[in-house]
């Protein structure tokens, strides 16, 4: 059983724990500069949307090249986005995304992804 990524988990702890502990453990800790706080507030939406977009829109072909991909995954992810924004409920969005994908694939509207 692979344990290589355990080290990555330890390192992730090392870069996460200070953020959680500094305020609680360090008296007199001054606050971050305004610009840094503004930037940090935007990192979450940017990185998560980048991951989602790259995952559904870019595939690596047999030759190792990145190619643009259009498929039912777009519809499923957009449906999840819309439902989550509308109902503020990620679970409903995920269920809708899965249902759309499964139904489309069962109907043969799209081929199963080769990855």
């Amino acid at each position: 059983m692979s344990t290589e990524l355990v080290l990555l988990a330890v390192l992730m702890l090392a870069v996460t724990y200070p953020s959680r502990a500094l305020g609680i453990l360090t008296p007199g800790l001054d606050r971050l500069p305004h610009a840094a706080l503004d930037y940090l507030q935007l990192v979450g939406p940017a990185v998560l949307s980048a991951i989602a977009a790259v995952t559904v829109m870019v595939v690596v072909d047999a030759g190792g090249r990145s190619v643009f991909h259009i498929g039912i995954e777009w519809v499923a992810v957009l449906a999840c986005l819309a439902i989550t924004a509308w109902r503020r409920n990620l679970l409903l969005g995920l269920i809708a995304a899965v249902l759309i994908t499964v139904v489309a694939r069962e109907m043969g509207l799209v081929a199963l992804p080769g990855i």
Binding site: V77, C80, T84, G93, A97
Partner: peptide, 22 residues
């Protein structure tokens, strides 16, 4: 065959949903 059950779509969909929350 997780793709048959749409499990492969959960990850990008979850990323988008989390982004919406932010």
């Amino acid at each position: 065959d997780p793709t048959r059950f749409g499990i492969d779509i959960i990850f990008p969909a979850a990323m988008v949903g989390l982004a919406v929350g932010l």
